[in-house]
């Protein structure tokens, strides 16, 4: 799967889901209403740089801490096209896969990118940032399929349908 878009860089390592979406907004269960609170505890100004198709470029251990799916749900609500990072915390990573938000580890590419860079991601393991090309391990098959088929909800629908047939 190929994704292309302009980068929005989120600086820093160990950015946790509390700053990405503070606890005081967790009494919201509708993704449309989660949208305005993304980045609230980190830098609300980052929202100004978002447009549909933006590729979020992040540092090491991004998304650590709480399992709150409010973070990738709000990212989807903004139309973020993919997340490229130096490394990710596990629950955030799998939440993105489940929501069919492409998420790729590419330490050198993530370091090289700055806001406005043109980024292309091939989930088979090739990343470009402006004129630089980077090779990374491909996303495992199970996860690639999950992303390209729309995430865990369609996966579950297919499984339920197969069980009924």
């Amino acid at each position: 799967m190929m994704i292309e878009g302009p980068a929005l860089k989120v600086e820093g390592a160990n950015i946790d889901t509390d700053v990405l979406y503070p606890g005081s907004f967790l009494n919201i269960d509708d993704p449309a209403h989660m949208k305005p609170h993304l980045f609230e505890g980190l830098d609300p100004g980052l929202r100004d740089g978002l447009k549909p198709g933006t590729i979020l470029v992040v540092g090491a251990n991004f998304g650590c801490g709480s399992s709150r799916e409010h973070v990738p749900l709000a990212m989807k609500a903004w139309g973020i096209g993919a997340v490229l990072g130096q490394s990710f915390a596990r629950i955030f990573y799998r939440n993105c896969i489940n929501l069919a938000l492409p998420i790729v580890v590419c330490p050198d590419g993530a370091k090289a990118a700055h806001s406005g860079s043109l980024v292309t991601i091939d989930t088979d393991g090739a990343v470009t940032v402006d004129n630089g090309a980077y090779q990374v391990p491909p996303t495992p098959d199970f996860m690639q399929e999950m992303i390209s088929s729309g995430g865990l909800i369609p996966w579950a629908r297919r499984r339920l349908a197969a069980a009924e047939a």
Partner: peptide
């Protein structure tokens, strides 16, 4: 710990995917 969509699938199938 899992996110809410993972929990939804676990509620339905009694299973989740795991590395």
């Amino acid at each position: 710990g899992l996110g809410s969509t993972d929990i939804a699938a676990s509620l339905v199938f009694g299973e989740f995917w795991q590395t």
